[in-house]
C-alpha cells in the first residue's frame, strides 16, 4: 500500500488508542502525585508521594485493599469451579447446534444491566424476599434469616456478575479441543478422571488462565454489586476509591493513587496467572 495511505490508516487508531485508552491512566498517575487537585486558586501544585504514604500509614485503607484482593481471589476460584462443568457440557458433550443454544441461555442474563441484576438479588435475599418467604412457607425458619448486606450477599452478587467473563474464555478453549483426542484417550484405557486431569485440563489451560485473569480484574473493579448488596462490614477498595471522588474536592490525588495501586496489583496478579499458562496467541498473530 502507498506510504501516505498507510500512515493515514495507522494515524487514527494510534491517536485513538493513545488518547482514549492510555492517556486517562497516565493522567490518573500524574494526579496521584499531586498534593492538591483540583487545585485551589492561588495554590501552586506540588508533586510528591504523600498519597502513597497515606495508603501505607492507614490500617483502614490497607484492610479494605486486602479485603478486595482476598474476595476477588475467592470469587475467581468459585467462578472457575462453577463454570468449568458448564462450559465442558456445552462445548464438548452437546451436539454443536444444541451447544450454541445452551450457551446463549447462559449469556442472555448478562445482556441486562448490572444494576438490574443487583436489584434482582436484593429481591431474592431480603427479609421479605423470595428465599426467606420460601423458607418460612416450608416451615424451616420462623423469623427471616438476615441474608442481605453482608459478605454472603456481596459474594453471591459478585459471582452472579462475573460468570460470563469466565464462561466465554473457557468455552472458547474447550470448543477448540478435538473430540477425537478424548476418544483416543478413552481407547487406550484412560478413565474419565484421568482424561480430565491429563488431557482436558492441560489442553484448556490457556482458557482457564484467561478466564481467571479476567474475573479477578472484574471482581477487583466491581462497584455497584458491593455498594448495593454490602453492609457496614464489607467495604471494598473500589468503594473506598469511589467515595474519594464522590465527596468533597481535594481527595482526588488520594483516589487516583488508590486507583493506580488497584490497577497495578490487579494487572500483576493477572500477569502471574497468564504466565502459568500463556494465552492463545491466535488473535494477535
Amino acid at each position: 500500500m502507498a506510504g501516505a495511505g498507510r500512515i493515514l490508516l495507522l494515524a487514527g487508531p494510534v491517536l485513538w488508542v493513545a488518547g482514549a485508552n492510555v492517556a486517562p491512566l497516565v493522567e490518573m498517575a500524574r494526579i496521584s502525585l499531586l498534593d492538591l487537585y483540583p487545585a485551589a486558586p492561588g495554590h501552586a501544585a506540588r508533586y510528591g508521594l504523600e498519597s502513597y504514604a497515606a495508603f501505607l500509614d492507614s490500617a483502614i485503607y490497607r484492610a479494605s485493599f486486602l479485603h478486595s484482593l482476598v474476595l476477588s481471589a475467592v470469587i475467581t476460584v468459585l467462578a472457575l469451579l462453577m463454570t468449568y462443568p458448564l462450559a465442558y457440557l456445552i462445548a464438548i458433550r452437546s451436539p454443536a447446534r444444541h451447544g450454541a443454544r445452551y450457551l446463549l441461555l447462559l449469556i442472555a442474563p448478562f445482556w441486562t444491566s448490572e444494576i438490574v441484576r443487583a436489584f434482582a438479588i436484593m429481591l431474592l435475599l431480603s427479609n421479605h424476599g423470595a428465599l426467606n418467604g420460601a423458607l418460612r412457607w416450608l416451615g424451616i425458619t420462623e423469623a427471616p434469616l438476615p441474608l442481605l448486606y453482608d459478605q454472603f450477599s456481596v459474594g453471591f452478587g459478585m459471582l452472579y456478575a462475573v460468570l460470563l467473563a469466565m464462561l466465554l474464555p473457557l468455552y472458547a478453549a474447550l470448543v477448540r479441543l478435538p473430540g477425537e483426542l478424548l476418544d483416543a484417550a478413552a481407547n487406550v484405557g484412560a478413565g474419565p478422571w484421568s482424561r480430565l486431569v491429563r488431557v482436558t485440563l492441560p489442553l484448556t489451560r490457556d482458557g482457564i488462565a484467561a478466564g481467571c485473569a479476567l474475573v479477578f480484574l472484574t471482581s477487583l473493579g466491581a462497584f455497584a454489586m458491593p455498594a448495593l448488596l454490602g453492609g457496614a462490614g464489607t467495604t471494598l477498595f473500589s468503594m473506598t476509591i469511589g467515595s474519594l471522588f464522590a465527596s468533597s474536592a481535594g481527595r482526588w490525588p488520594l483516589g487516583a493513587a488508590f486507583g493506580l495501586i488497584l490497577l497495578v496489583s490487579g494487572l500483576a496478579v493477572a500477569a502471574a496467572i497468564t504466565r502459568l499458562a500463556p494465552p492463545h496467541r491466535a488473535m494477535m498473530t
Binding site: 491512566l25 490518573m28 473493579g221 490497577l263
Partner: peptide
C-alpha cells in the same frame, strides 16, 4: 499487530472503578 491489538483492548482489562475514575480525571483534562 500484537502491540496495537493489546493497546486497543486495554479498557477490557482495566477494573471498572479504575476505568470510571480515570475517565472522570481525563474529562477534566
Amino acid at each position: 499487530r500484537a502491540t496495537l491489538f493489546c493497546a486497543a483492548c486495554l479498557p477490557i482489562v482495566t477494573p471498572g472503578i479504575v476505568s470510571a475514575i480515570s475517565l472522570r480525571i481525563f474529562i477534566r483534562l
